[in-house]
Amino acid sequence: MEALDLSMIGAGIIILGAGWGLGKIGSSAMEGIARQPEAAGKIQTAMIIIAALLEGVAFAALFAA
């Protein structure tokens, strides 16, 4: 059996954090849209950009490990 690979544990933590972050972004965006429906377009655009960047970090961690 091989030694414990700490890079895999680190990648797993990053991916779990990215999942939590995506959920937080989505819930905050829905709350913002509920409070100010007229700003839904701007909130949704910002949410999609941030989610894409966060997903890129998760994929980078997955493939770097």
Results as ranks from 00 to 15, higher is better:
Glu55Ser: 07
Trp20Gln: 01
Gly23Phe: 00
Ala61Glu: 04
Ala58Gly: 05
Ala29Ser: 12
Ile9Pro: 02
Leu4Gln: 15
Ala39Cys: 15
Ile33Phe: 06
Ala60His: 05
Gly41Cys: 13
Lys24Asp: 04
Phe63Arg: 15
Ile9Trp: 08
Gln44Tyr: 06
Gly41Ala: 14
Trp20Ser: 03
Ala52Asn: 12
Leu16Gly: 01
Asp5Gly: 08
Ser27Gly: 04
Ala65His: 08
Arg35Gly: 06
Ala64Asp: 09
Met30Glu: 07
Ile43Gln: 06
Lys42Gly: 11
Gly32Lys: 03
Ile48Arg: 14
Ile9Glu: 10
Ala34Gln: 10
Ile43Met: 12
Ala40Leu: 07
Ala52Arg: 09
Ile33Asn: 04
Ile15Gln: 03
Gly19Trp: 00
Ile50Glu: 05
Ala61Thr: 05
Ala11Gly: 05
Gly23Trp: 00
Gly19Leu: 00
Leu54Ala: 04
Gln44Ser: 11
Met47Arg: 11
Lys42Asp: 14
Ala40His: 07
Met1Arg: 10
Lys24Ala: 06
Ala29Arg: 04
Gly56Thr: 06
Lys42Thr: 13
Ala46Gly: 13
Gln36Tyr: 08
Gly19Arg: 00
Gly23Lys: 02
Pro37Cys: 09
Ile15Ser: 00
Ala64Met: 13
Gly21Asn: 06
Leu22His: 01
Met47Pro: 02
Leu22Arg: 00
Ile13Trp: 05
Ala61Lys: 02
Glu31Asp: 15
Arg35Gln: 10
Ile49Thr: 11
Leu54Asn: 01
Pro37Met: 09
Gly41Phe: 08
Ala18His: 00
Met47Trp: 03
Leu22Gln: 00
Gly56Ile: 04
Pro37Phe: 08
Arg35Trp: 02
Ile25Asn: 02
Ile50Thr: 15
Ile43Val: 13
Gly17Ile: 01
